[in-house]
Computed example of a mutant assay.
Amino acid sequence: MPIDYKRYPPNWKTEIRPAILKRANNCCEHCGVENYSIRDGKKIVLTIAHLDHDEENWNISYDRLAALCQRCHLRYDAKEKARRRKSDKNQLKLEL
C-alpha cells in the first residue's frame, strides 16, 4: 500500500527519514540487512517504522522511530494491523 505522505510532517523525507537511516548506519535495526542490498533476489529498501504505531503524531522523537526492512516492518506491525482490522469490523457491526 502506498504511503500517504499528507499524514506525515512536511520534513519527513528531507530530514526525519535521512536522520533515522543515518542513526541505523543504513541497516535494518532488527535484522541488520543493508539498505538497497539484495535478499532472496529482491532489492531491500528500508522503511521508517513508527514504534508506537501512531504515524499521525507529528511530535517526532527519534526513539519512536526505527529503520526496518520490509520484512521486519511487516512483522513488527502485524499485531497492530490485526487489532485495527478487528476494531474496524466491530465498528462496522455496531453501525449496522
Rank of each mutant, 00 (worst) to 15 (best):
2 P>W: 08
4 D>M: 07
4 D>A: 06
5 Y>C: 12
5 Y>S: 12
7 R>A: 11
8 Y>H: 15
8 Y>W: 12
9 P>Q: 01
10 P>C: 12
10 P>V: 14
11 N>Y: 03
13 K>V: 14
15 E>L: 06
16 I>C: 07
16 I>W: 15
16 I>S: 10
17 R>H: 14
17 R>T: 06
17 R>Q: 08
19 A>N: 13
19 A>D: 14
20 I>C: 03
21 L>P: 09
21 L>H: 01
21 L>I: 05
22 K>V: 04
22 K>F: 01
24 A>C: 11
24 A>I: 14
25 N>K: 07
26 N>Y: 13
26 N>T: 09
29 E>I: 11
30 H>C: 12
30 H>P: 14
30 H>I: 10
30 H>N: 12
31 C>P: 11
31 C>S: 10
32 G>S: 06
33 V>E: 03
34 E>T: 11
37 S>Q: 04
37 S>P: 00
40 D>C: 15
40 D>W: 08
41 G>R: 10
41 G>Y: 13
43 K>V: 06
43 K>R: 09
43 K>A: 01
43 K>D: 04
44 I>N: 05
44 I>R: 06
45 V>S: 15
45 V>W: 11
45 V>T: 15
46 L>C: 06
47 T>W: 00
47 T>Y: 00
48 I>Q: 02
48 I>P: 06
50 H>S: 04
50 H>M: 03
51 L>D: 05
52 D>Y: 04
52 D>C: 07
52 D>V: 08
53 H>V: 09
53 H>I: 07
